[in-house]
C-alpha cells in the first residue's frame, strides 16, 4: 500500500548517551501534542520513546561513545509512526519466546528486559523492522 506522508514529519538525531533520551522524549511529546494527540496518549508515547531510545543506546549501540540514535516521526493523518534507528553494533535477535510481564513479576525471570513489553502495552503496534539496513530499526505506531 502506498502511503502518502503528511508534510508534518520530523526527524531528530541525538548522541548515543544515556540522558539524551530525555531531550528526544520532550521533543517528540511537543510534536505529538501539536498534531492533536491527547495528553494521556502523549504520556504513553513519552514512556515508549524513552524506553526505545535507552534500548538503542544500551543494546544496539552498546553504550559506545561517538555513536548516534536517529528518530523519525512520520504522521499521515491516521497515525503517528515513530522509528528509532541505532547503528547496530549488536543486532536484535529474539531467539526464544520472551517472558510476559506477569511471568517476570512472578519471579520466573530477570526484571530487566521489560522495555519492549512496556512499549507493546502502551502503543498500538510495535516491533523491530526485519529488513533494517545499517543497524536496528524499532518502530511503533500510535493511531488516532
Amino acid at each position: 500500500m502506498k502511503t502518502t506522508y503528511h508534510s508534518a514529519s520530523m526527524e531528530l538525531s541525538i548522541p548515543s548517551e544515556l540522558g539524551y533520551e530525555i531531550i528526544a522524549r520532550d521533543a517528540v511529546a511537543v510534536f505529538a501534542l501539536r498534531l492533536g494527540f491527547s495528553p494521556e496518549r502523549v504520556e504513553d508515547l513519552k514512556t515508549a520513546l524513552s524506553e526505545a531510545c535507552i534500548n538503542a543506546i544500551e543494546h544496539g549501540n552498546l553504550l559506545t561513545p561517538g555513536l548516534r540514535v536517529h528518530i523519525a516521526c512520520i504522521y499521515d493523518h491516521e497515525r503517528l509512526i515513530i522509528q528509532i534507528h541505532d547503528q547496530g553494533l549488536k543486532r536484535y535477535a529474539c531467539t526464544t519466546t520472551p517472558l510476559t510481564t506477569a511471568e517476570k513479576i512472578a519471579g520466573l525471570g530477570s526484571m530487566r528486559g521489560m522495555g519492549l513489553l512496556l512499549i507493546e502495552q502502551l502503543m498500538d503496534e510495535a516491533g523491530f523492522l526485519p529488513d533494517a539496513q545499517d543497524g536496528n530499526c524499532f518502530r511503533f505506531t500510535l493511531y488516532r
Binding site: 520530523m10 526527524e11 531528530l12 521533543a27
Partner: peptide, 9 residues
C-alpha cells in the same frame, strides 16, 4: 561537545 539535530516542517 554533543550535538542534537532537529529537522522540522
Amino acid at each position: 561537545e554533543k550535538i542534537i539535530e532537529l529537522r522540522l516542517p
